[in-house]
């Protein structure tokens, strides 16, 4: 119990240190609300993906295809909005694709038995290719969608300033936390990552649970694509590709173990914030953009070392 809180506290301390550094060195940027509004606008995208991927990592699975699922879903969303002029049809077609893409990954991993890292590298190409074939490579613009209800609901500016996507991501974080740590489904996930054989012996349907996890990832990737497409009022063939590193960095900075069986939603949440503010902080400090990667590296390594240290202490 105590050990668990040390994780959460250490990650919070890292965030606090970084923010303090930014505020003291460039107060003219970090004491203004504007920069925080921009964080609230864009951090939710990688955060939703990271939150959704965390249970998969805990179950010792991985999904590398989510960027490509996002590309296809975003295309389906934008194109069906243009074709049917109906945001709800577009929304459900889009999530429907996410469902089937996740199911597809899940079946290949669970029923055929291909390790998820390999299976999803394959499907990543498949989906990316699909996006290219469907779109013929041209970007889609859906400027008119900014006027729609769904745009207000998911990416509108509530009270004139608050980006709605932030609300949805917080809601999702709470929900996934409850499911992972308070619901019997989450219990199964934890045990599958810890000792799959034991989970089987205790009557957990490990196949079904893992397939559901992949489906969940597919649907949330699609949902993220909806948010992204609404925010940009635009779809690009490369959409999604930029999130791969950010999402994994968020999860591992947060303290979720690569070995499966344990993880933290709070950690992923804070991890995504840390990853989301670094680049702009570096730019504001007037440093060269080339430093961004270097500092990502430093922070990831510090975080991972701190976590490993705590982990080892707990194991004595």
């Amino acid at each position: 119990m105590k050990e668990k809180y040390i994780y959460q506290i250490s990650i919070l301390v890292i965030l606090f240190v970084i923010l303090t550094l930014f505020i003291t060195t460039v107060p003219e940027v970090f004491l203004q609300s504007r920069i925080y509004i921009s964080y609230l606008s864009i951090i939710p995208f990688s955060m939703i993906l990271a939150l959704s991927l965390t249970p998969l990592i805990i179950a010792k699975e991985i999904d590398l295809s989510f960027p490509s699922i996002m590309a296809v879903s975003g295309y389906i969303f934008a194109q069906s909005y243009l074709s049917f002029d109906n945001t709800f049809i577009a929304f459900f077609l889009c999530l429907g694709f996410g469902f089937f893409a996740g199911l597809f990954n899940g079946l290949i991993v669970v029923k055929i038995g291909v390790p998820s890292i390999i299976a999803t590298i394959g499907s990543q190409f498949l989906f990316r290719g699909l996006a290219m074939i469907l779109s013929g490579g041209t970007a889609l613009s859906i400027m008119e969608i900014k006027e729609s209800f769904i745009s207000d609901l998911f990416t509108g500016r509530w009270f004139g300033f608050f980006p709605a996507q932030s609300f949805w991501v917080i809601l999702f974080a709470v929900l996934i936390w409850f499911i992972l740590f308070k619901h019997k489904f989450g219990n199964s996930v934890l045990f599958i990552g810890d000792n799959k054989k034991a989970a089987n012996m205790m009557g957990i349907n490990t196949d079904k649970t893992r397939i559901i996890l992949f489906i969940q990832m597919g649907i949330m990737s699609s949902f993220c694509a909806v948010l992204l497409t609404l925010e940009m009022a635009n779809w690009w063939p490369t959409n999604g590709e930029g999130y791969l590193l950010l999402v994994f960095a968020s999860i591992f900075i947060g303290g979720t173990s690569v070995f499966g069986g344990s993880g933290t939603i709070f950690g992923t949440f804070i991890g995504a914030i840390i990853i989301g503010i670094i680049e702009s902080g570096i730019i504001a400090m007037g440093l060269d953009g080339f430093y961004t990667r270097f500092i990502y590296g430093v922070i990831i390594l510090i975080a991972v070392c701190v976590h490993a240290k705590i982990l080892n202490k707990g194991k004595v």
Binding site: S38, F45, L228, M232, W236, E241, E279, S280, G289
Partner: peptide, 12 residues
């Protein structure tokens, strides 16, 4: 790859 991520850099 994902231009929308540039929003906070631009703001900063």
């Amino acid at each position: 790859k994902d231009p929308v991520l540039g929003a906070s850099v631009f703001t900063a």
